[in-house]
Design a protein around this nucleic acid. Structure first.
Lengths: 201, 201
DNA sequence: AAATGAAAAAATCATTAGATTTTTCATTTT
DNA sequence: AAAATGAAAAATCTAATGATTTTTTCATTT
């Protein structure tokens, strides 16, 4: 079957897709951090009205302002430009492997990349790579989220709310609001496609 | 680090974990099909009170009854026993690769396996394999769900709400309530880890 | 022990009012 | 000309209420 609306054809107008997306990103990041317009605007030394307009793409923040906001939201400013080289139709819909931003995770031995092309969904997909020999610290406090995942490769031991399980490729798990910990006893990295709902990043 | 509560040790009491899980499964399946106790009980020729008790594990349905219910809910009766050989602590938390049930998907060229160990979560994880050369029919009507996925291997062309995208390994997508269609123009199966929220199975 | 039927309890749903947050927009500033 | 402000208007969120539906409980029968 043939689909219409093929993207990426030459002569496509690019528009100010980035400027528009930046606003949505800021809004989503602000929401997951439970901040109001007033709080973020205040911290950034700008007015509520201005931030509202920025988030809705009605006005464009200066690079200086964006840098400031990124800082307050705990992301690198480059995060906002992760898909800028892609066609506008694709933005927010697809995230190419090469564009995945590395996120959060101050833990060593764990690299997390965002798979979700949008931050405004009801869940978030993440690719986590657990280094051989690495482990989380103590079980982290339970988050008010539901987590799930599939082990793509390697092996991983997880401790979830009192139960220890050894995961092998293809095994999947899911739990809600339980504390958990992990440990990679294997000799190769463990790759997990992880799902969190609602989004936390 | 060492975790406590290791499972699978010998001498563990097995309990009636299956009977208990069956009830929860029935309830979840019934919910996703938007049926009330009265509707399902009526169709099964049983009382509301009885079904309520079955779903909460207070009473055990006969195999004949369970067969009947499975039929009305559109699943194979074996579905209820998918993790029965596993330790009870693991049930509802982990789903082993070998235990994954094949689900729905009347479409040829598409095999879907359930990854979620529980049906009562806020999202569902599915492993979809799209056969080489296969394609969906017309774009299916949009569901009131949010869908996302990652292409693990192979290549897949998707048409999502008017936009056609070519996906390669590692690419991810996410969309809410849009009609979509797919086509595998490649020569190898395309494997996608798919997420649907809320659960539809 | 399973199954029923009916009463009791609980959960769901639609309103509504109040409070908070966000948007709009006329005006000022850069 | 576009960015930024500040205040009014609109929209969103919360909590409470009552009506309705659904589910649970439980005494009784199969």
């Amino acid at each position: 079957m043939n689909f219409s609306g093929k993207i990426g054809s030459l002569g496509e107008k690019w528009g100010n897709a980035v400027a528009h997306h930046v606003g949505e990103d800021i809004r989503s990041l602000r929401k997951t951090r439970a901040m109001t317009l007033a709080q973020l605007a205040g911290a950034a030394g700008r007015s509520v009205g201005w931030l509202s307009q920025v988030e809705r793409g009605r006005t464009t923040p200066s690079v200086r302002d964006l840098e400031q906001l990124a800082d307050l939201l705990g992301v690198n400013i480059s995060f906002f430009f992760r898909s800028s080289r892609r066609a506008p139709e694709e933005q927010g819909l697809v995230l190419r492997a090469a564009d995945r931003p590395t996120i959060g995770s101050d833990e060593s031995g764990l690299v997390e990349e965002l798979l979700s092309p949008t931050l405004s969904g009801s869940f978030e997909m993440i690719r986590s790579v657990f280094a051989p020999g690495a482990s989380s610290g103590d079980p982290r406090k339970a988050r008010p989220t539901e987590d799930g995942g599939v082990l793509i490769s390697g092996a991983l031991t997880m401790w979830i709310g009192g139960t220890e399980v050894h995961l092998y490729p293809g095994d999947s798990f899911q739990f809600a609001g339980a504390p958990y910990a992990w440990r990679n006893d294997g000799s190769e990295p463990a790759v997990v496609i992880w799902v969190v709902s609602p989004p936390i990043y």
